[in-house]
């Protein structure tokens, strides 16, 4: 491996790392609502299926598409903001929509402090209500400026979904930390399948994951909540 490749991999590792301050730890994407929805504590099969559905019906068809379009929009922030809004509107459940926005804005806050190019001006748009700040679009905006390729950004975004969902499963004590890691490879290979499929120029953002949305709405109504969604 040459030094440039190694440097790129290390940059990707830093920014996909769950230690990177981005607020992601506080979101379960509806997983917290799963127990009361099914009436029992979810085990490995239920959690794997839940995350699979998130990947196939939400991430691959909407987050990933929005990320790719925003990445290609490059410095045209008006276009980035348009995609941002489109992604926001495509999510039905309020707490999932708000979660993506808060997560994106939290990540942006870290980069504003770092001085990552584009972070401050995009934050300003959000403050003025001319941009939404959904997580996948913020990923595209920032990671592109770190020199990462589109495919890498897509893979990192998918990794983030799998990793934060399983972290939530551990924090909810649905499964142990070792079990959660053992659940990762098949979910990551599903992510890899989609990451290897280029997003078409005319691909539309169309997430539809009724079960996940119902779980998230259920979570929003819980009297006792550990997670933001």
């Amino acid at each position: 491996m040459n030094e440039d490749n190694a440097a790129t991999i290390l940059t990707a590792l830093q920014h996909a790392d769950s230690n990177f301050p981005s607020g992601s730890f506080a979101f379960s994407q509806g997983l917290e609502g799963l127990a009361s929805l099914t009436g029992k504590r979810p085990g490995t099969d239920e959690i794997t299926n839940f995350v699979r559905e998130q990947i196939v019906h939400r991430w691959a068809s909407s987050d990933r598409v929005a990320l790719a379009h925003a990445y290609r929009a490059g410095d045209d922030l008006d276009r980035v903001a348009e995609i941002d809004e489109e992604l926001d509107l495509s999510t039905f459940c309020e707490t999932l929509r708000e979660g993506s926005r808060r997560n994106g804005q939290a990540l942006l806050a870290t980069h504003v402090r770092f001085g990552t190019p584009g972070a401050a001006s995009y934050r300003q748009r959000i403050d003025r209500d001319t941009a939404t700040g959904t997580l996948p679009v913020v990923h595209a905006l920032l990671w592109r400026r770190l020199g990462l390729a589109e495919e890498a950004c897509v893979a990192m975004s998918g990794y983030g979904l799998v990793s934060s969902s399983l972290t939530a499963a551990v924090r909810l004590n649905f499964v142990g930390a070792l079990t959660a890691q053992s659940m990762m490879p098949p979910l990551l290979s599903l992510v890899a399948t989609y990451a290897g499929e280029p997003v078409a120029e005319d691909a539309e953002i169309c997430g539809f994951n009724p079960f996940g949305e119902i779980a998230a709405m259920n979570q929003a109504g819980l009297a006792l909540r550990l997670f933001s969604n």
């Binding site: 504003v112 584009g118 972070a119 300003q124």
Partner: peptide, 11 residues
Amino acid sequence: DTIDNIPAAET
């Protein structure tokens, strides 16, 4: 408003 137009006070 391009991506490189960063208000210095924000960083």
